[in-house]
Design a protein around this nucleic acid. Structure first.
Length: 596
RNA sequence: GGUCCUGUGGAGCAGCAUGGAGUGCUCGCCGCCCUGUCAAGGCGGAGGUCGCGGGUUCAAAUCCCGUCAGGACCGCCA
């Protein structure tokens, strides 16, 4: 090492010793005869003092230095209690400039926020700032904590391929041309789902991986085209075992990184309960504002909007905005635009007069006296509140609109306790939901096991059949999801039949998995955690970009490297991008043609 | 694919609704001064195609259209 000590580690106990430090000029205070430099390395900052030094005068921000000097207590009254090293300073004997720095394109300063494009363009400078650096270090600790829990339980960390074939998550694949087989393409895995199931067949019993996953979909604040899952799979287990392990990992993470003791067991909601009460399968339980179903209460109403939904076997419900009656007409109209932006026709409302409790507003005129009289009690509204309604023959659609309104209400009314952590499991999710073409599509993925009650008859009511699936939710974010898998070939075949996946198609897509399942597959299940999102929550970050070393922008670009780039004509030819696929030659494709 | 917000010396912002000389603020940068500061201080200075293109106008940072870039949301995606 070219240094003897770390800058941030020096204390008054080091006084009187000679040290050699290496680091960066964080800040310079030049008084002419005496110059102070805050020298920063990974451990922190220490003040170094130059006297009558022309060299010090020439130093600039972010020069990389090596200095040798004497540690000593600061003169009486000059201590800085803000700094861990504030009792001492290093008086410089020797200075070596290891490298100079140009003026900075962005300030390395805790107090200035820079725009995302500048930060990412110079991410290596952004990461010199304490906040971003702390986020990455915290993520490293999170990885370590998870590994500790899993290794203590004899889990095996196994890496799976990133050049592979399409996995059944349902998103668009990233594709990689294959030079050696022109016209054929690898897919980057959307998750290690199939490989981890194969590892169960292989008898590994307890697998995990901090796995990079790839999905070619549009961005959000919590989405990147490549992202990370903590991926886990276990043999000879049921839901309870996976849930218990998950809780142990989460409890350790939050205990050590957030100083928060998660109340165990984590409360559970069934999927239907979550939809009924919160209008979402990832409810934020830090506040109330629950939905009320009014389908039965309003049965018989003359109001066309509601009666049409009720007659069609649909849903009418409401959510209350506390104090919402004080909104101006313009604000209430803005809710209509808000609802339309979400694809709804609008958002019916009544406001309750703050004094009389009288219901007013366009919808109130359309409701009968008895319906109006009991409304406030039924939905739990007080005078001065506003009540928003959604009605549709599509129960889930109406609930989701109210659920989105609930989130918006909590935001506008500042109902969210930002220090709180509210976890819950969403269990008993449906196996299937209707697809656009009148068929069925898996809610989770096609290997999710039906519950015991449904295993023999899920075909009879696919929309009602429940799965052994569980999602972990924290503060309204889905942070993990998993299921018990199907390990019986006959059940798997029936699921494929229902999904309209022919034996030939199944063999083509997952033939290797089905084949593996011919050789004594163990019952197994697992879970995958959205690792970026979990780290962002623990770091208190708004975006997962903050906990990714080199994230991409919303357009999928990396402003630092300039990726993605065009390729040369030669690369194009060599990669075989334009090659016509040859007739299948390799063994797996032949078998696919056989239809298993 | 759709809706919305943002783009002004190196950084962060104000100016734009109501067009009138690149105007302002904080920081940084350069030079000088300064022996106890710690987001040091003082004096002076440099630095701009107001993202880009087009239009309206006597006149555009400001209004209109398009486009690019960054961000938020819907669709999509667990």
């Amino acid at each position: 090492m070219i240094r003897t000590h770390e800058a941030g580690a020096l204390r008054s106990s080091h006084a009187g010793t000679s040290v050699t430090l290496a680091g960066w000029v964080a800040r310079r205070r030049d008084h002419g005869g005496v110059t102070f430099i805050d020298l920063r390395d990974a451990s922190g900052i220490v003040q170094v003092v130059f006297r009558e030094s022309a060299d010090a005068h020439a130093l600039r921000s972010e020069f990389c230095l090596r200095i040798t000097g004497q540690v000593r207590r600061r003169p009486e009254g000059n201590e800085n209690p803000e700094l861990p090293t504030g009792e001492i300073e290093v008086v410089v004997d020797e200075l070596e400039v290891l490298s100079a720095s140009d003026p900075l394109p962005l300030p390395i300063d805790e107090h200035v926020e820079a725009g995302d494009d500048v930060r990412l363009r110079h991410r290596y400078l952004d990461l010199r700032r304490s906040g971003p650096a702390r986020a990455l270090r915290m993520r490293s600790r999170a990885n370590h904590i998870a590994r500790q829990v899993l290794h203590a339980r004899e889990f095996v960390e196994i890496e799976t391929p990133t050049l592979t074939r399409s996995t059944p998550e349902g998103a668009r694949d990233f594709l990689v041309p294959v030079r050696l087989q022109p016209g054929t393409w690898y897919a980057l895995p959307q998750s290690p789902q199939l490989f981890k199931q194969l590892l169960m067949v292989a008898g590994m019993e307890r697998y995990y991986q901090i796995a990079r996953c790839y999905r070619d979909e549009d961005f959000r604040a919590d989405r990147q085209p490549e992202f990370t899952q903590l991926d886990i799979e276990m043999s000879f287990v049921d839901s309870e075992d996976v849930i218990a392990l998950s809780e142990e990992i989460m409890a350790a993470l939050w205990r050590e990184l957030a100083g928060h003791e998660i109340g165990l067991p984590v409360p559970r909601l069934t999927w239907h309960e979550a939809m009924d009460r919160y209008g979402t399968d990832k409810p934020d339980l830090r506040y109330g504002v629950e939905l009320t179903e009014l389908t039965d209460y309003l049965r018989g109403t003359d109001f066309r909007v509601f009666s049409a939904a009720i007659m069609a076997g649909g849903y009418v419900g409401a959510v209350v905005m506390p104090g919402g009656a004080s909104q101006t007409r313009k604000e209430l109209d803005a809710w209509q635009d808000w609802a339309k932006a979400r694809g709804a026709r609008g958002l019916a409302y009544v406001v309750l007069d703050p004094d009389s409790g009288q219901a007013r507003g366009p919808v109130a005129k359309n409701l009968s006296e008895p319906h109006l009289a009991g409304l406030a009690d039924t939905v739990g509204a007080k005078p001065g509140d506003a009540v928003f309604f959604a009605a549709s023959d599509d129960r889930r659609g109406a609930q989701e609109l109210l659920g989105a309104a609930r989130v918006e209400i909590a935001d506008r009314c500042a109902l969210v306790d930002t220090d709180a952590w509210a976890f819950c499991w969403i269990v008993d999710a449906p196996m299937f939901e209707p697809d656009d073409a009148g068929g069925w599509t898996p809610v989770h993925h096609p290997f999710t096991a039906p519950t015991d009650e449904w295993i023999d008859r899920f075909e009879q009511a696919p929309g009602a059949a429940l799965a052994y699936a569980y999602d972990l939710v924290c503060n309204g974010n889905e942070i993990g999801g998993g299921s018990v898998r199907i390990h019986r070939a006959d059940v798997q075949r029936r699921v494929f039949d229902l999904l309209g996946i022919s034996p030939a198609e199944a063999a083509e897509k997952f033939g290797f998995l089905l084949e593996a399942f011919r050789y004594g597959p163990p019952p197994h299940g697992g879970i995958a955690f959205g690792w970026d999102r979990i780290c962002a929550l623990l770091a208190g970050a708004d975006s997962i970009r903050e906990v990714i070393a080199f994230p991409k922008t919303r357009g999928g670009l990396d402003p630092l490297t300039g990726a993605p780039t065009t390729i040369t004509a030669r690369q194009r030819t060599e990669a075989g991008v334009d090659a016509k696929p040859a007739p299948p030659t390799h063994p797996r494709s032949e078998r696919a043609a056989d239809g298993e």
